[in-house]
Design a protein around this nucleic acid. Structure first.
Lengths: 164, 164
DNA sequence: TATTGTTATACTCTATAACTATA
DNA sequence: TATAGTTATAGAGTATAACAATA
């Protein structure tokens, strides 16, 4: 027999009236990717935002909480909980900045770098699963186009903070 | 003198560590587009979600509230406020479905269709402004790739509802 | 017994205001 | 006087639970 299916929350097919709306395309794609990516990250214990913060810190650290937040467009009050989470997991250390004792010098710990490697692998798998409908060349093309868009130097109102 | 600049909430340049993360690219692109599109829609008085609902209704209506919600992945309890908004503006009528008197038959009014045309023009302008950094061929390419992704028939966990 | 629309409620996410300790 | 981090709080936005009317 065909697989039992409970009442769907959403129709499978996108409404034709919206299929040409860029906002609709971006929103659906982002939401679909996020659900896959967050499931993939779950075993690492990292949220999407914490993953992004840890990646930036491992790459550019040490940083203050506020500077780290600005890298991602996240408010300093919001960063408190993100860093709390990373610290509780032992992935980030809050040292004091010697030159400005108001600020922290956030460091990615060795354990943090290890989990980051696992998280990056998980994110990579999620991305491949999500992009599976596209040919390999198309996948690179899509990422290049998006990267060009968000890096464009023009006057672009930076709005809501996205979670990686 | 150079233009005065208040403390930025977000660095202009994307963090290199995240620039290859698809989730980051999608999130930033979606957020940036949304801020442009919502500003463009503001004169019509329509929120992004209301715009999407009205577009679907004008194209496929009459629909019940619940069916309209499922077209967009919006919960029926959330649809109540969306339709309230459209009805208050005179853009949608809540008639009773003759064949099932529990349900509404939602209709786009003539005023609703007129404002929809204006909203579509505004969304089109917003899209062009947002895509300006890309060459014309690239813009079509990007939309085609996104459309292919979200229409792919594979098992795709449909998650959060996006606003068009 | 199940379903449509509705309300009340709770939960998540995020930002604003106000505080403290440093600068 | 201004800034880094923190807390309390408020505002969106959305979902779950429960209810009346209808099927």
């Amino acid at each position: 027999m065909p697989p039992e299916r409970k009442p769907e929350r959403r129709d499978a097919a996108p409404p034709p009236a919206l299929q040409r709306q860029l906002g609709f395309l971006l929103g659906r794609a982002h939401a679909a990717h996020r659900s896959i990516a967050e499931a993939a990250l779950a075993p690492t214990g990292l949220s999407g935002k914490a993953f992004g913060a840890l990646a930036v810190l491992a790459d550019e650290g040490p940083l203050s909480q506020q500077r780290l937040g600005r890298r991602q467009g996240v408010d300093r009050t919001t960063m408190v909980a993100v860093v709390d989470e990373l610290q509780a997991l032992g992935y980030v250390e809050r040292r004091r900045d010697a030159r400005d004792r108001r600020a922290y010098a956030l460091h990615a710990t060795p354990a943090g770098r290890r989990v980051l490697a696992r998280a990056q692998a998980a994110a990579q798998e999620a991305e491949e699963a999500f992009l599976a409908p596209l040919a390999p060349g198309e996948r690179q093309r899509l990422k290049a186009l998006l990267a060009a868009l968000i890096s464009a130097p023009d006057i672009r109102p930076a709005a809501d903070p996205p979670a990686p």
